[in-house]
Design a protein around this nucleic acid. Structure first.
Length: 332
DNA sequence: AAATTGTACAACCGCATATTC
DNA sequence: AGAATATGCGGTTGTACAATT
């Protein structure tokens, strides 16, 4: 069935011929990108507008890089995928000259295959010791926590997911070395701080949204020997980070404007988007901790919190429950 | 050499959201 | 305001080619 944009026309489908490509290139280079639904008629193509758009964006655009992915690109895709999940378009925005389709195909062929065959998440080192030029992306776009609907487990079709309730095997050095969360340096203004400190329910909700320690440890126990891919959600470890180590989840221009407004670092609350940790160069999977998908849902006004005294040891209490007074909230 | 299987990636489909009328 | 249309996205399929049997 034809798309709505071309229901009146008889449309060709399948692979594009060189002649069709030429017509489309000629039209777009002459007239620019506009209303795709009118392109087929104007360009003399028996294709639907949607197909023309896809062909241009994914194949004919002059700024496309094409060719094999470099090790740096591969590592960046893996890194971004651990944060963004299957949001290929978002990932592709960080890879100049690459399309969402290309990234998706690359993931589904090369990376996924590697994961399934080795039962690991390929780390940067898997694709050689590359230096990820994150500074290049610092102000160009935004990063998000994983969405609630997407996670590694569903992406990889894991056969034996970590069970909801598992018998924890406590091994203190392991947590301290690999999974510590000494500080979650988010930011809060005084009003918000008061609101939170006056409401245990609210503060606990926020903490719970950020981290569910019991499940974190249980899951980590299940797979801390390089099977980190089995963790439900992998996020950068948050420890001893300053504002400089964070991105705000806004669009790049907005981010820069907001950053300019408050680069004295004392008015971060003016950011109206959640703030997330910046990815570091040379991070390995050891630099990651597990978090719940709900972490993506915390609201901007909830984000500016600082939690101190929150170590991986302390979160492992005997009855596996959290007490509100385990946390100190400090404005920044 | 032919048939089969595997792989990469181009293209399509359906859906959600945005925009226009 | 709501319907119609356009756009963008992610999942999936189709196809060409390579590798294997």
């Amino acid at each position: 069935m034809a798309h709505t944009c071309c229901h009146k026309e008889k449309v060709k489908r399948g692979l594009w011929s060189p002649e069709e490509d030429e017509k489309l290139i000629n039209y777009i280079t002459t007239h620019g990108q506009g209303c795709w639904s009118s392109v087929p008629k104007l360009a003399g193509l028996q294709r639907c507008g949607k197909s023309c758009r896809l062909r241009w964006i994914n194949y004919l655009r002059p700024d496309l890089k094409r060719g094999n992915f470099s090790n740096e690109e591969a590592a960046l895709i893996i890194e971004l995928h651990s944060i963004l999940g299957n949001r290929w378009a978002q990932i592709a925005k960080h890879l100049p000259g690459r399309t969402d389709n290309e990234v998706k195909n690359f993931w589904n062929s090369s990376v996924k295959k590697r994961i399934l065959s080795h039962n690991i998440i390929p780390s940067f080192n898997t694709f050689s010791n590359v230096h990820i030029p994150f500074n290049h992306y610092h102000h160009q776009d935004h990063l998000y926590f994983p969405s609630s609907s997407q996670n590694l487990q569903s992406n990889f079709h894991i056969q034996n997911p970590v069970p909801e309730i598992a018998q924890p095997i406590f091994n203190p050095p392991c947590y301290e070395d690999t999974c510590s969360m000494d500080c979650v340096p988010l930011h809060l203004n005084s009003n918000q701080e008061n609101q939170i400190s006056k409401s245990d329910t609210t503060s606990l909700n926020i903490v719970d949204k950020l981290i569910n320690p019991t499940t974190l440890i249980q899951q980590y126990d299940q797979c801390h020997d390089d099977d980190l891919f089995e963790l439900e959600y992998i996020v950068p470890k948050m420890s001893d980070q300053s504002f400089e180590d964070y991105y705000a989840c806004s669009n790049p221009i907005e981010l820069m404007q907001q950053y300019d407004k408050c680069h004295d670092h004392h008015h971060l609350v003016e950011f109206d988007q959640p703030i997330v940790p910046k990815l570091f160069n040379d991070q390995s999977h050891e630099d990651y901790a597990c978090s719940f998908q709900e972490s993506s849902n915390f609201e901007a006004h909830e984000a500016p919190i600082k939690i101190q005294g929150y170590t991986s040891s302390s979160i492992y209490s005997q009855d596996h429950t959290l007490e509100a007074n385990q946390f100190n909230y400090n404005s920044c």
